[in-house]
Amino acid sequence: MQLATVEYGIKSKWGVEMVSDYTFNEIFDEYHPKILRYLTRIVGPDDAEDLSQEVFDKISRGLSRFQGKSSLSTWIYRIATNTAIDRSRSTAYKYGKTHHPFEDEKSHESSDVTVAPTSPVTDQLVIRKEMSDCVNEFIDNLPPDYRTVIVLGEMEGFANKEIAQILGISLENAKIRLHRARATLKNALREGCDFYYSEGNTLACDRKQIQILPKTPS
């Protein structure tokens, strides 16, 4: 494979040089832990490692064609998301896993939907990195499209415009999807958790205990 001429390129183990001011090795070192964590949340730990290898193989092959129309991180996360969607929709994955496949954009969003401003209560209930594992379990149980947008917005810190670019949808639909995902998460958390603030003033939760009433004599 002929390598591109760059200002200071270092050949990676994939045999590809970086575009602009970064080498592929630098991109891999910076983004691999993030993408592995992201994919773990989206498809589960069993598939995340294999998918991350596939993602960076695609990055290595597509890097010379990257034109900078979006930020590098947005481009990388879009590749990762599309790779996860492809896996989710594959026959083997759909029949071998309990996850539901990703839905198409039109099945989720409509331009007729009005997105209300996010309330402070919703902000408090939305996942943060410091929250307890209890909340993370509710994130993991969201439908795939909702789980993805919550992870991108609340855990990876992407703005709505970047989320739209990553998911390949309009900005309006990105806002709608995030609004619905937050509402779904908020309702699930209210039904299943008791909330409190930890010693570090971080919102956390404990699962509600299901009360089993004694049987009445017949």
Results as ranks from 00 to 15, higher is better:
residue 3 L to S: 09
residue 7 E to H: 13
residue 7 E to A: 13
residue 8 Y to C: 10
residue 9 G to W: 07
residue 12 S to Q: 08
residue 14 W to E: 11
residue 14 W to F: 15
residue 16 V to H: 09
residue 17 E to K: 08
residue 18 M to K: 08
residue 22 Y to H: 12
residue 23 T to W: 00
residue 27 I to A: 05
residue 31 Y to M: 15
residue 31 Y to K: 08
residue 33 P to H: 04
residue 37 R to E: 14
residue 38 Y to H: 04
residue 39 L to Y: 06
residue 42 I to F: 02
residue 43 V to H: 01
residue 43 V to Q: 03
residue 45 P to V: 06
residue 46 D to K: 11
residue 46 D to R: 11
residue 47 D to M: 03
residue 48 A to V: 05
residue 50 D to T: 11
residue 51 L to E: 01
residue 52 S to W: 00
residue 53 Q to N: 10
residue 55 V to H: 04
residue 55 V to Q: 06
residue 57 D to R: 08
residue 57 D to L: 09
residue 59 I to M: 07
residue 59 I to V: 15
residue 60 S to Q: 11
residue 61 R to L: 15
residue 63 L to R: 07
residue 63 L to D: 03
residue 63 L to W: 05
residue 66 F to Q: 04
residue 68 G to F: 11
residue 68 G to D: 10
residue 68 G to T: 13
residue 69 K to G: 06
residue 70 S to D: 11
residue 72 L to Y: 03
residue 72 L to Q: 06
residue 72 L to F: 09
residue 74 T to M: 06
residue 76 I to E: 01
residue 78 R to C: 09
residue 80 A to W: 00
residue 80 A to E: 00
residue 82 N to I: 10
residue 87 R to G: 01
residue 88 S to R: 04
residue 88 S to K: 01
residue 90 S to T: 09
residue 91 T to Y: 07
residue 91 T to I: 02
residue 93 Y to V: 02
residue 95 Y to I: 14
residue 96 G to Q: 11
residue 97 K to V: 13
residue 100 H to N: 09
residue 102 F to L: 10
residue 103 E to H: 08
residue 104 D to W: 07
residue 106 K to I: 15
residue 107 S to T: 10
residue 107 S to E: 13
residue 109 E to H: 00
residue 111 S to Y: 12
residue 112 D to K: 05
residue 113 V to N: 02
residue 114 T to Q: 12
residue 114 T to S: 07
residue 117 P to G: 00
residue 117 P to Y: 03
residue 118 T to C: 03
residue 118 T to G: 00
residue 118 T to M: 10
residue 123 D to K: 11
residue 126 V to R: 06
residue 131 M to K: 01
residue 133 D to P: 06
residue 133 D to L: 15
residue 135 V to R: 05
residue 141 N to M: 14
residue 142 L to F: 02
residue 144 P to F: 00
residue 145 D to R: 10
residue 152 L to A: 09
residue 153 G to D: 04
residue 154 E to L: 02
residue 155 M to G: 03
residue 155 M to T: 12
residue 156 E to V: 03
residue 157 G to Q: 08
residue 159 A to W: 04
residue 159 A to S: 07
residue 160 N to K: 10
residue 160 N to F: 12
residue 161 K to N: 08
residue 162 E to D: 13
residue 163 I to T: 02
residue 166 I to A: 00
residue 166 I to V: 14
residue 166 I to T: 00
residue 167 L to A: 03
residue 169 I to Q: 02
residue 172 E to I: 15
residue 177 R to F: 07
residue 177 R to A: 04
residue 178 L to A: 09
residue 185 L to V: 05
residue 186 K to Q: 14
residue 186 K to T: 15
residue 187 N to D: 15
residue 188 A to K: 07
residue 188 A to R: 08
residue 189 L to C: 11
residue 190 R to C: 09
residue 191 E to C: 03
residue 194 D to E: 13
residue 194 D to V: 12
residue 194 D to I: 15
residue 198 S to H: 03
residue 199 E to P: 02
residue 203 L to C: 02
residue 203 L to R: 04
residue 204 A to M: 14
residue 205 C to W: 00
residue 207 R to C: 08
residue 213 L to D: 12
residue 215 K to V: 14
residue 216 T to E: 09
residue 217 P to N: 03
